[in-house]
Amino acid sequence: MEEVSASAGQLITILVMGIALGMDAFSLGVGIGLKGVRKLDVLKLSTVIALFHVLMPLGGMVTGYYVSGLLGGVATSAAGALLLLLGGHMVYSSLRGEAVQSINHRTFWGVLVFAVSVSVDSFSVGVSLGMFASHILLTVLTFGFFGGFMSVLGLMLGRRFSGRLGGYGEALGGAILFAFGILFLI
């Protein structure tokens, strides 16, 4: 019975982290959607963002697995500190109002820059999860799903609503990652 509740707990953790990481994609989507975006652009951006939300944490998990072998028992503390820093940075960035505004989201390089910018934190989280030997396939597919879904949601909402939603989405995602960092350190 304990094994089932541990698995359910891990699944809930992965889902919540996937949603938290998707908040960056949501925030960016709202910002781009407010500028005006075609449905083809929504599909293109969301697909590339979802792909990067799979590849970046996968690379991070491989790195984290290697680092955990080197660090041993210190790995949990290192993972918690990494999540604290990442979550704190996301909240700080949202409060400062940093936004990428001069990049054309319709070009190949624009799509690539946007996808990388909202997926970099997935790499860091992947490093943390790799230290725990988490379920790799489930984790990266969940992160990819929520990255793509949240970007579609943000792009579509951005087409219809004001710009206040974007910063709050990133701040909420950062707060969730910060909370997980605290839990790992306790």
Results as ranks from 00 to 15, higher is better:
residue 1 M to Y: 06
residue 3 E to K: 11
residue 3 E to P: 05
residue 3 E to H: 08
residue 3 E to M: 08
residue 4 V to F: 06
residue 4 V to I: 15
residue 5 S to Y: 02
residue 6 A to K: 14
residue 12 I to P: 00
residue 13 T to Y: 00
residue 15 L to A: 07
residue 16 V to Y: 02
residue 19 I to L: 15
residue 19 I to C: 03
residue 20 A to G: 07
residue 21 L to H: 06
residue 24 D to K: 01
residue 25 A to T: 11
residue 25 A to D: 09
residue 25 A to P: 00
residue 26 F to T: 02
residue 26 F to C: 03
residue 27 S to W: 04
residue 27 S to H: 02
residue 30 V to D: 05
residue 30 V to F: 07
residue 32 I to P: 04
residue 34 L to H: 12
residue 35 K to T: 15
residue 35 K to H: 12
residue 38 R to T: 15
residue 39 K to Y: 15
residue 42 V to A: 06
residue 42 V to S: 03
residue 43 L to K: 10
residue 47 T to L: 15
residue 49 I to N: 00
residue 50 A to H: 00
residue 51 L to A: 12
residue 51 L to V: 14
residue 53 H to T: 02
residue 54 V to T: 08
residue 54 V to D: 00
residue 56 M to N: 02
residue 56 M to Y: 05
residue 56 M to D: 00
residue 58 L to T: 04
residue 59 G to E: 03
residue 69 G to E: 14
residue 70 L to H: 09
residue 71 L to W: 03
residue 73 G to H: 13
residue 74 V to S: 09
residue 75 A to H: 00
residue 76 T to F: 13
residue 81 A to G: 10
residue 84 L to W: 04
residue 86 L to V: 15
residue 86 L to K: 01
residue 91 V to E: 06
residue 93 S to Y: 05
residue 101 Q to I: 11
residue 102 S to L: 09
residue 105 H to E: 12
residue 107 T to F: 06
residue 107 T to P: 05
residue 108 F to V: 15
residue 110 G to Y: 04
residue 112 L to I: 12
residue 114 F to Q: 02
residue 116 V to H: 02
residue 116 V to Y: 06
residue 122 S to G: 15
residue 122 S to N: 12
residue 122 S to W: 04
residue 123 F to C: 10
residue 124 S to P: 13
residue 124 S to T: 14
residue 125 V to M: 12
residue 125 V to A: 11
residue 127 V to F: 07
residue 130 G to T: 09
residue 131 M to E: 11
residue 133 A to R: 15
residue 134 S to D: 10
residue 136 I to E: 09
residue 136 I to K: 14
residue 137 L to S: 09
residue 139 T to Y: 02
residue 140 V to M: 04
residue 141 L to C: 09
residue 141 L to R: 03
residue 146 F to D: 00
residue 146 F to W: 13
residue 148 G to F: 00
residue 148 G to S: 07
residue 149 F to P: 01
residue 149 F to Q: 02
residue 151 S to D: 05
residue 156 M to A: 09
residue 161 F to M: 11
residue 166 G to I: 05
residue 166 G to Y: 10
residue 167 G to R: 03
residue 167 G to T: 08
residue 168 Y to N: 05
residue 168 Y to W: 13
residue 168 Y to I: 09
residue 169 G to L: 04
residue 170 E to H: 10
residue 171 A to M: 08
residue 172 L to W: 11
residue 172 L to Y: 13
residue 172 L to F: 15
residue 173 G to H: 09
residue 174 G to T: 06
residue 175 A to S: 15
residue 175 A to W: 04
residue 175 A to F: 13
residue 177 L to R: 01
residue 177 L to F: 06
residue 180 F to R: 04
residue 185 L to I: 12
residue 185 L to V: 11
residue 186 I to N: 09
